[in-house]
Design a protein around this nucleic acid. Structure first.
Length: 709
DNA sequence: GCAGGAACCTTTTTT
DNA sequence: AGGTTCCTGC
């Protein structure tokens, strides 16, 4: 046996127990910062180096591409050899791979295309118009959600029975069925379909199932608490009689219930695999004792838990700070002020918030102080309109029957082909049971269109055919380059929005670079265009290229999962915002609390919590109550930086009522102004202030921060 | 068919 | 407030 000390030695006793456990089903309940990924990676290395299995026998599943690539990198680092045959990937990536290999068994055309959620919505929109339903009630979004929900539960339209007179369900089912037929006919596979189709194929095909059950002797799953129904079913079918499941998860970090993740799957494991061995990783290596204590106290308020208490043998560290701001602008300025004092790397600092809309004020404050920052989330690279435009051309060149691509670019750049003409084309396509591309030829041959519509259409198809022929022997990147140049896309964006055009141009350059890179990395690929398009759909790419290597990180709590920072600001802790009103309405308070727990446990060294007494939302300024999550943290763990001024008698900060009519004042949110009227007494004194910016406001002294100037 | 103004709607996000 | 989609008049 080879020397395996390098795999075992860096681990603590419990981690070692998990990594070197005998071949059996294992559930690792790994608390935040307890070395979850490390255990997974070392487990794989241990299996390989103790020669229990070859790379070929191992399947490791993650939820995000980022997690998958990190795991692959760390495995390679640890083993110092290539691990050919080892499958590490996302659920979707792995299913895509299986379907490409077994398209016949899956009853798919070999050329099936992946529909991203944007494409999916377009298809649904199109179906909805043919149903002629009230579009106020039947929105594409709702239908999309219904279909995806069904698929995520493993249900086809024919499996659902609408009882009695549930007309809504009946209508949804008929839409779902039409959608299924449309996708099947056109060889389209949406994200949920990748999983469902793989599941069904393995379920219905004994030989294939046996092949993979024998092959994958070890199935390892990361973030198990995030699995939904179909993912769980898929895992169950992949793990055969002689295979072992290694599931790593943390019920306290389950924050994706709203998109179908089932915490119950963790409990189901013990039912479905009675012999499963449960190991708890509770020692935290990330945060200070105080931060952990805050996290533990908060999460203890949740009833639905398996129970777990994180501990550390490190220092208690600094207290956790709490700042009560007057407005979200005050909050941002305080936080950015603290960041400006930070002497280590910017990338060690994160501002976490509940909703993306909160990022703006921070952005402005950071720009003002000249601090580099990066906002995560938002539109991702391959979701950008200009990228999707070029890829639609590529799709159409490659596959003239692709209606989704056709519809996207038929009038882009503007060719004078509008909705009416397109509607006619759709009708013709339906009539002849053909693609829109062929419908154009029918229409022109049979003279079904006005000259005004026919001329640009004929021009369009001729041009595409010509371009296609011209690019036949070109490489992927040459094709993309020619599309960008010959279709006049840049000029179109220039006309559309001259300010945005520069950025779009840069993105297109980036796309070109990505295709060149893809070419060099996939030299032996037979159908490189399809491979590239699939990758673009499955890996939508980062939100924005990191313009700076070292910048402050701004992100929602959801995107912060799995990351850690020395200095963390968790802001907007207000009732209605965090916990969010919608979650409260839907009874999902516990998930919000877990989200808060995730946020707290991101911090290594210093954690600031903040809330604001007022907040501008939907164009209105409202008073905001401090979040219950703050109240659930024992006050001795918190150090308040500025006490809530309103009505607090223990604050020590008396609102000073030395202002009077005629005084020039400044306000952190509205700027400078002059007091023109006064009413009320004591804490309830109100001033009417006319601000230089034009607004005149009544302000309750207790809730605002007016300063004489 | 298209541009520009009115009405509408605002959680989280991956694949 | 801001962004998107919808509607109307040219």
């Amino acid at each position: 046996m080879e020397d395996i000390s390098h795999i075992i030695d860096p681990l603590n006793a419990v981690q070692r127990e998990a990594v070197a456990a005998p071949a059996e089903h294992l559930l690792i309940l790994a608390g935040a910062g307890s070395g979850k990924t490390r255990v997974l990676v070392h487990r794989i290395a241990w299996i390989l180096e103790t020669q229990q299995a070859s790379p070929h026998n191992i399947l490791a599943v993650t939820f995000t591409n980022k997690a998958a690539s990190e795991m692959q990198t760390r495995i390679n680092q640890l083993l110092q050899t290539t691990t050919l045959g080892l499958w590490v990937g996302t659920f979707h990536g792995i299913c895509h791979r299986l379907l490409r290999m077994h398209w016949q068994e899956a009853r798919l055309p070999s050329t099936f295309q992946i529909l991203d959620s944007d494409d999916q919505q377009r298809v649904i929109k199109r179906i909805l118009t043919t149903f002629a339903l009230d579009d106020k009630i039947w929105t594409p979004k709702q239908v999309q959600q219904f279909i995806n929900n069904c698929k995520e539960q493993g249900l086809r339209s024919q499996h659902i029975i609408a009882e009695g007179y549930d007309l809504w369900l009946k209508q949804m089912l008929s839409l779902y069925q039409t959608y299924e037929e449309y996708c099947q006919k056109n060889g389209l596979v949406d994200f949920a379909e990748l999983l469902l189709r793989t599941y069904e194929t393995l379920r219905d095909n004994t030989a294939l199932r046996a092949t993979y059950q024998t092959r994958f002797r070890h199935v390892l799953v990361d973030e198990f608490q995030d699995t939904n129904d179909i993912q769980y079913k898929l895992l169950r079918i992949l793990v055969g009689q002689h295979s072992y499941l290694f599931a790593v998860g943390d019920d306290d970090q389950s924050i994706y219930g709203w998109r179908g993740a089932k915490i119950e799957n963790i409990q189901n494991l013990s039912k479905d695999y009675p012999a499963i061995h449960m190991i708890r990783l509770e020692q935290n290596y990330r945060s200070t004792g105080t931060i952990l204590s805050v996290a533990n106290n908060l999460i203890a308020n949740n009833k639905k838990r398996l129970g777990k208490n994180l501990w550390t043998d490190g220092e208690a560290g600094e207290p956790v700070y709490l700042y009560s701001a007057y407005s979200e602008i005050d909050e941002a300025q305080f936080i950015v002020g603290k960041i400006a004092d930070w002497v280590k790397k910017w990338q060690e600092v994160a501002i976490l918030y509940r909703t993306s809309a909160q990022s703006r004020v921070f952005e402005e404050a950071l720009i003002q102080k000249n601090i580099p920052y990066r906002i995560f989330g938002g539109l991702r690279f391959y979701e950008r309109a200009e990228i999707k435009d070029v890829l639609a051309y590529l799709r159409l060149l490659h596959h003239r029957q692709n209606d989704t691509a056709f519809e996207r670019i038929i009038n882009l750049p503007k060719r004078g082909i509008g909705d009416k003409t397109l509607e006619n084309l759709r009708a013709i396509a339906r009539q002849h049971q053909c693609a829109l591309w062929e419908a154009v030829h029918h229409a022109i041959n049979a003279q079904l269109l006005t000259k005004r519509a026919a001329t640009p259409l004929l021009e369009f198809v001729t041009f595409i055919d010509k371009l296609s022929e011209q690019l036949l022997d070109c490489s992927l990147s040459e094709k993309v380059q020619q599309i960008i140049q010959q279709m006049g896309l840049i000029a179109h964006y220039q006309k559309d929005d001259p300010i945005d055009a520069q950025r779009r141009q840069e993105n297109l350059d980036e796309l070109l670079r990505a295709t060149q890179q893809f070419e060099t990395q996939n030299k032996e690929e037979f159908d490189i265009v399809s491979a590239f398009l699939a990758q673009a759909a499955l890996e939508a790419g980062e939100g924005q290229g990191s313009k700076f290597d070292d910048c402050v990180q701004l992100m929602t709590l959801h995107s912060a999962k799995g990351l850690e920072f020395s200095l963390v600001f968790l802001c907007g802790l207000e009732e209605g915002l965090f916990p969010h009103q919608n979650s409260l309405d839907e009874g999902n308070l516990e998930e919000e609390r877990r989200l808060c727990y995730v946020g707290i446990t991101r911090a290594r060294q210093t954690l600031y919590l903040s809330h604001s007494e007022t907040r501008a939302q939907y164009g209105q300024r409202n008073n905001a109550e401090q979040s219950r999550f703050i109240r659930e943290i024992p006050s001795e763990l918190l150090q308040e930086i500025r006490l809530k001024s309103a009505y607090s008698n223990h604050s020590g900060v008396q609102p000073s009522i030395t202002l009077q009519v005629g005084d020039n004042v400044s306000h952190p949110t509205y700027g400078n102004g002059v007091i023109i009227e006064q009413e009320g007494q004591g804490e309830l004194t109100r001033f009417q202030v006319r601000f230089a910016k034009g607004a005149t406001k009544w302000l309750l002294l207790a809730y605002t921060r007016l300063e004489k100037c």
